[in-house]
Design a protein around this nucleic acid. Structure first.
Lengths: 146, 146
DNA sequence: ACTTTAAGGTTGATGTGTCAACCTAAATAA
DNA sequence: TTATTTAGGTTGACACATCAACCTTAAAGT
């Protein structure tokens, strides 16, 4: 069904992703204590909602299920990165970044940028960039994250 | 540190991976009941050891820690896909594929091949292939899996 | 021989993901 | 009005991943 070379290509593609992505996440997590999910959430709260977003909106931006987000927020709340409070005017919950969360986010941004440059951007040629762009076009649904 | 376009590229790259890889894994898991790890383990037992491998060898082939493998094998053993027995001649444990495991693996192979072709190979141009190959070269350590 | 180191595995805790079941209140239908 | 549906969230169970601690036994040093 599939040749040796084709299977190799598949494995190489997966390998590259794991190496690159793993390096970026490792840098971030070691230097800031944030996981990919943590960063993605804090980033969106800051950028899209100047510090606060309704939970379901956040779930949409992250392309996460409400369940996944709920579990994750529970853990983040426990660490003091965000807090949740009910919305009075309508149903739903506001997710709010704490000052601690905001300050950690600010520290994390340059770390993440640097990691992406080092482990990803620096490896790419112009052709690679075109290839990535065209592939993304073909697989488009409406994804997201980090 | 990083421009908008660069960040976009990063997100697109991650998005493509998640879509493609997710589709392949979903097809496999829905049609065969195997996770990526399950398949990788059964595949290696079958190909590299004609049905049996020492646990540490398997861990090396998978590029997994012994802990990760130990936990995973415990679950697979519970499902009757593999079994473990101590090696008499030396220290260590033999991991052996069961007949059930072997038969599921045989059913899974074409499913996996088809999924890789549909969701991955069919999307690629010649340039994409070159790009993937060259990127893999640059990130090479000694990875693996599925 | 005796001590130390390292190989091969297991285990428990915790973080992360997914799925299905559930709850409450708002919106819609009757 | 009363019943039904649905939006918004939570929860519990379980699979998966990582980390650190631990155990046992073979190998190496002394």
């Amino acid at each position: 069904m599939i040749s040796e070379e084709e299977m190799q290509l598949w494995h190489r593609w997966k390998g590259s992703y794991k190496n690159i992505f793993g390096s970026v996440v490792k840098d971030m997590s070691e230097k800031t204590g944030l996981s990919e999910g943590d960063f993605g959430i804090l980033d969106r709260l800051d950028l899209y909602g100047k510090g606060k977003l309704r939970q379901q909106e956040l779930a949409d931006l992250m392309d996460w299920t409400k369940s996944r987000l709920s579990h994750h927020l529970t853990r983040m709340e426990k660490r003091g990165l965000v807090l949740r409070e009910p919305i009075e005017t309508e149903r739903g919950v506001q997710v709010i970044i704490t000052s601690v969360g905001k300050s950690i986010l600010d520290d994390a941004r340059p770390v993440v940028s640097l990691a992406i440059r080092e482990h990803f951007l620096n490896l790419l040629t112009e052709k690679d960039i075109e290839s990535i762009t065209s592939l993304a076009e073909k697989t488009k649904t409406k994804s997201s994250s980090t």
